[in-house]
C-alpha cells in the first residue's frame, strides 16, 4: 500500500519577478508530522497555500491524497484541515456558530467537545472579534480538525499562544498523529519543530537546503557540542589547559566552556584532568546542538555562499 499522502515534485511559485518557490520536491507519509522551516519569505506559506488549493502553482506537480489541489479543490477541502496564518472568520460569528457553520459545510456533526478541550468552553457565545488573539487561534485550530481530516495543515499554529495552550495543542497533534492524521507544520519555532516533527525541510529563498529528521539535521552540522564544567578549585582556569577535540573554549561566570567536535574524548580527558589535579567536579553539562543552532548555521552558510542576507 502506498502511504505517501503528500507528493511535491519540482514545484515552482512565482509572483511577478520574484521566484518564491524554486523547484522543490518532497514527500510526506501517512501519520507523519512534517515541519516546513525557514525565515520569512522562504516560501513556506506559498507551498502550503498551493497544497491547500488557495494558490495556483506555476510549475511542477502537487498531490494531496492523490488529489490535484488546483483542479479538484471541492474534493480536496473534505480531506484537509487548515489553520491559516490569519484565522479569517467573520467578526460577528459566535464560537458555537462558527463550529456549526463549518461542520455543516463538511457534512459532519458539530464538535463542541473540541471547543471545551481547547479552552473555549466559557466563550462559546462570544463573537469572534471579542476573543483574544490566542483564543482566535485556538478556535481556528478546533475548526480545522472538527471534520477529522486525514491531512492537517498548520501555519504558525502556536504564534500568540500561552504555554498551557501550546502544551494542549502539542498533545492534540500527537493524538491526531496516533490516529493516522498527517500534519504539515510551518513554523518559525525551532524548538516546536524539534519536539513535534518527525521530519523537517528547511527552505531558504524558495529552495530546500536541508531535509531529514531533527536528529539527522543536528548531527550533520559542524557538530560542536557545548560542554560546561564547574569545579570547586580553579584548575580549569590555569593557562594552557586544553583537551582533545576542543575547537573553542572560554569562561563564563564560574564555568569553563568547551566546544567539542567529539564529546567522548573531551569529557573523559576533563574528568581525568580533574582527578589528577585533585579538583572536585560540581557541575558538568553537555548540550548537543539544537535544531535552532543548525538552522542558524545553515542560513549563515547560505548567506555567505550567496553574499546576501538569509
Amino acid at each position: 500500500m502506498n502511504d505517501t499522502v503528500i507528493q511535491v515534485r519540482d514545484f515552482r511559485k512565482i509572483y511577478g519577478d520574484v521566484v518564491a518557490v524554486d523547484g522543490i520536491s518532497f514527500e510526506v507519509q501517512r501519520g507523519e508530522i512534517f515541519g516546513l522551516l525557514g525565515p520569512n519569505g522562504a516560501g513556506k506559506t506559498s507551498t502550503l497555500e498551493c497544497l491547500e488549493g488557495l494558490r495556483t502553482p506555476d510549475g511542477g506537480s502537487l498531490r494531496v491524497m492523490g488529489i490535484n489541489p488546483t483542479r479538484q479543490s471541492r474534493k480536496l477541502c473534505h480531506v484537509i484541515g487548515v489553520q491559516l496564518q490569519s484565522s479569517g472568520l467573520p467578526d460577528n460569528i459566535c464560537v458555537d456558530e462558527a463550529m456549526k457553520f463549518f461542520c455543516a459545510y463538511h457534512g459532519v456533526a458539530p464538535r463542541y467537545d473540541l471547543l471545551d478541550r481547547l479552552g473555549l468552553a466559557e466563550k462559546r457565545n462570544a463573537q469572534y472579534h471579542q476573543l483574544s488573539a490566542g483564543l482566535q487561534r485556538r478556535l481556528a485550530l478546533a475548526l480545522a480538525v472538527a471534520h477529522d481530516p486525514p491531512v492537517l495543515f498548520l501555519d504558525e499554529p502556536t504564534a500568540g499562544l500561552d504555554v498551557p495552550s501550546r502544551v494542549e495543542l502539542h498533545s492534540l497533534m500527537r493524538e491526531l498523529q496516533a490516529a493516522g492524521t498527517t500534519v504539515i507544520l510551518a513554523t518559525h519555532d525551532m524548538a516546536e519543530a524539534e519536539e513535534m516533527a518527525d521530519r523537517v525541510a528547511i527552505l531558504l529563498r524558495g529552495k530546500i537546503v536541508a531535509t531529514g529528521t531533527p536528529l539527522e539535521l543536528t548531527a550533520t552540522g559542524a557538530g560542536l557540542t557545548k560542554v560546561s564544567v564547574r569545579t570547586k578549585g580553579a584548575s580549569l582556569f590555569s593557562p594552557g589547559v586544553t583537551f582533545p577535540a576542543v575547537s573553542q573554549q572560554g569562561f563564563k561566570d564560574e564555568y569553563a566552556i568547551y566546544f567539542s567536535t567529539d564529546i567522548g574524548p573531551t569529557v573523559a580527558a576533563i574528568i581525568s584532568f580533574l582527578e589528577a589535579q585533585e579538583d572536585t567536579l560540581i557541575d558538568l553539562r553537555v548540550e548537543r546542538p539544537s535544531l535552532e543552532d543548525r538552522f542558524l548555521e545553515i542560513t549563515r552558510t547560505e548567506a555567505t555562499n550567496t553574499g546576501g542576507a538569509p
Binding site: 477541502c77 473534505h78 487548515v82 491559516l84 479569517g88 472568520l89 463538511h106
Partner: peptide, 15 residues
C-alpha cells in the same frame, strides 16, 4: 470579508 481572508477560510472549508 475578502480583504480579511474570510473567503480563503471559506474556500478551504468547502463554502
Amino acid at each position: 470579508a475578502r480583504e480579511a481572508g474570510i473567503f480563503r477560510s471559506y474556500k478551504v472549508n468547502g463554502v
